[in-house]
Amino acid sequence: MRVMVMVKATTDSEAGLMPEPAMFEAMGKFNEELVNAGIMRTGDGLKPSSQGKRIAFDGPSRTVIDGPFAQTNELVAGFWIWEVRDMAEAVEWAKRCPNPMPGPSELEIRPFYEMADFAEIAGPEIIEQEERLRAKLEGGAPAAERA
C-alpha cells in the first residue's frame, strides 16, 4: 500500500524559518531508517506558500492565484511517499518521526488510489496505459533534460 505522509504547515514553516541543526539531523536519521526498512520512496520539504501559485479552474477558464495562501494549518510543508503493508504500519512509522516543527505540528497520512480501485470504470486499455506511464516515470528523464 502506498501512502503520502504530509507534514502540515505552521506559522514557522510559512515564515520560511529553517530547522535547527539538531532537528535536521534527527530527521535525516529518521529518513535513513525509512530507507533502510524499504518504506520511503521519496520525500521533500516545500518552500512557503508565498513562493507558490494556485490555478483555479472554472469550465474552460483558468485563473492564477499568487501565494501566500490563508489557513496555514491546511497547507503542506513537506511530504513522504511510503510503501507500507497497511495503514497501521504507516501510523507506527509516523509516530516514530521527530517533531518536524519547533512547536506543535501534525502529520497527515493518506492512501493512494491503486488501479484496482478503478476496476469497475477503467477498461483494460486504460489500465495498460497507466502501467506504461508508471514504467516510463520510473525510468524518466530529469526535468532539466526535458526542457
Rank of each mutant, 00 (worst) to 15 (best):
P100V: 09
N36Q: 15
Y113G: 08
I39D: 02
R134N: 09
L17F: 10
C97A: 15
E20P: 00
P100Q: 11
A141T: 11
T11W: 05
A26E: 10
R62W: 10
W93G: 09
P48E: 11
M27V: 13
A77H: 10
I121E: 14
V7Q: 11
M18Q: 14
L75H: 06
D66V: 08
I55C: 14
P124Y: 06
A116W: 04
G16W: 12
A77Y: 08
E14R: 10
P111W: 02
A147K: 12
C97Q: 05
K53P: 01
D44T: 10
I126F: 13
A143G: 00
E92I: 01
E145V: 08
V84T: 13
M4I: 14
E25L: 04
P98Q: 07
G139Y: 00
A15T: 05
M1F: 12
M40R: 10
R2G: 01
P21T: 12
A122F: 14
G38T: 03
N31Y: 04
E145L: 12
E128I: 00
V76Y: 03
A135K: 14
V76G: 07
A90K: 06
V91G: 04
D44Q: 12
T63M: 10
W80H: 03
E74R: 08
P124N: 14
I65L: 15
I127E: 04
E20W: 02
A88F: 07
M40G: 01
E120T: 02
A22N: 05
I109H: 07
N73W: 11
E83N: 12
P104C: 02
A77N: 09
G52Q: 03
S105W: 10
E89G: 06
D44N: 14
E120W: 00
R96V: 01
V5K: 04
P111R: 09
P124H: 09
F112T: 00
A122K: 01
P19Y: 08
R132E: 13
F69E: 04
K136L: 13
R132P: 01
V7C: 10
M101L: 10
S61M: 09
S13L: 11
Q129I: 00
A143H: 05
E20M: 13
R41D: 02
R2T: 01
V7P: 08
I65W: 10
F24Y: 06
D117P: 04
E125H: 13
E138T: 07
E128T: 09
G123K: 12
V3R: 02
A15I: 02
L17C: 11
D58F: 08
P100T: 08
I39N: 02
A94E: 05
A22H: 08
Q129M: 13
A56N: 12
I121T: 15
P142D: 08
N73E: 15
A144T: 01
G43N: 02
A116L: 03
E74K: 05
G78M: 06
A90P: 06
M115Q: 11
A141V: 11
D117R: 06
W80A: 04
M1V: 13
A147P: 00
L75W: 07
R2I: 02
